[in-house]
Design a protein around this nucleic acid. Sequence first.
DNA 1: CGTTTAATTGAGGAAAGTCAAGTGAAGTGG
DNA 2: CCACTTCACTTGACTTTCCTCAATTAAACG
Lengths: 240, 240
Amino acid sequence: MVRGKPAAAGQGPTIRANDPWIASAGKYHQLLSPEKRSRLSSIASVVRFRKGAEIYRQGCSANAVFSIVSGVVKAYKTRPDGEEHIAEFLFPDDLFGLPEEGKYANSTKALTAVTAFQIPVVALRSQLSKDAALEFHVICKLCQELRQAQQHSFLLARRQALSKVAMFLQLIERLQAARGERTTDIYLPMNRSDIGEYVGMSLEAVSRAFRGLSARGIIKCQDRRHLKITDRSALEAISV
Amino acid sequence: MVRGKPAAAGQGPTIRANDPWIASAGKYHQLLSPEKRSRLSSIASVVRFRKGAEIYRQGCSANAVFSIVSGVVKAYKTRPDGEEHIAEFLFPDDLFGLPEEGKYANSTKALTAVTAFQIPVVALRSQLSKDAALEFHVICKLCQELRQAQQHSFLLARRQALSKVAMFLQLIERLQAARGERTTDIYLPMNRSDIGEYVGMSLEAVSRAFRGLSARGIIKCQDRRHLKITDRSALEAISV
DNA sequence: CGTTTAATTGAGGAAAGTCAAGTGAAGTGG
DNA sequence: CCACTTCACTTGACTTTCCTCAATTAAACG
């Protein structure tokens, strides 16, 4: 297990999500009050991972959950033939490491340098049982995760490569907007191969799809990780 | 809104799921005590839907959540071109109708005759805020839903038609087992078109895949909705 | 500046989609 | 109870799309 330092006082894990029963115009909010955060920080520790580091492996006993402070993480499953399928990309304020049958359901790897809070399961559970409001925040976060997973299925069910990639770009942009970042540019923290493993296509097909969207004047690639949407209505039409 | 009768005393909505941090060998448990159930029944009403009836539509204001007593429901999204994508199949003891931004995230339709508890959101929320244990059960159920959604994505990312259908059959069988039903036969409560919309293929391809699995001696179709798995190891090999 | 890794591009083939016709099952009404 | 209608499913022929493999180019890194 990774060993971290105790969390600094005055800051602590965050949950960024929304009450699913209340409209919020696509913007996520910080659900935890400063007091709650510092109370959680007393049971959490700060851990760091360098780019490419594995955080935990699918099937291992789940002793802790994580809350991202900075950086991007991928959660993925590996097939017996070695092929990987990415289940989700995780960004700051996301929660991950919730298990299934006591074991991690996916493997996770840092796509960039990552700083996170690590919260031991036993401490988290005792905190949850004492704090109904905290539990409700976790419910909100899980609803959000569930919607994102369903959105992912919706994307994967598309047959056209251009549609898949168009939906993927909209998804990344929506997440950027929900975090309150600027959306003039879209930043892709993952490589083409990761995108392919997320949208269910070969990396060559991803590359061709980017080219196809560029050729139609729908996007403009600044470099391999930065692009602009130049024709939003066409992007929406193609992603249908 | 559908108008139902008040729930009978002594019975009430159920949540069937597992504590994700505890191993339970794939079997789901009833999380609510009889007292909890009857307390919930006082805020719930019983509603019935005939086969094919729409329960609610995506985008409508989410005033109630539902807990299935008997029958099967599909949750789906409709694309502008009229094509449908099924996000999940819902069975007895499943919970559905949790919203996103105050609105239902999917449309739902009864695949068979359905009996369900309908729980108004305001009553549910006040109950949740008073009952940390109930909230924890909802967290367990949401974790389970999230894993199923990720499983669905995993299935959809497969390229081979036979693999998709093989995984689908394993999924249905696993659900049958988790509900405690016999698994000598697999019963499919949905038609080929629904299967196609769930696994992301045309219904013709679904038909051919069933034929392909039969021809290989992996399954044996009794009729269109009942089949047996005759070569389990081959099924697992093909669903990889 | 050279080496390694990531991404692009091209050609050929396999697989599933589409369209259309045909078969089987279920339900309806006389 | 049986002929008829309807719907669900199957099957076949053809087309499209993406995957695979291989070669090339571009970017990142020591």
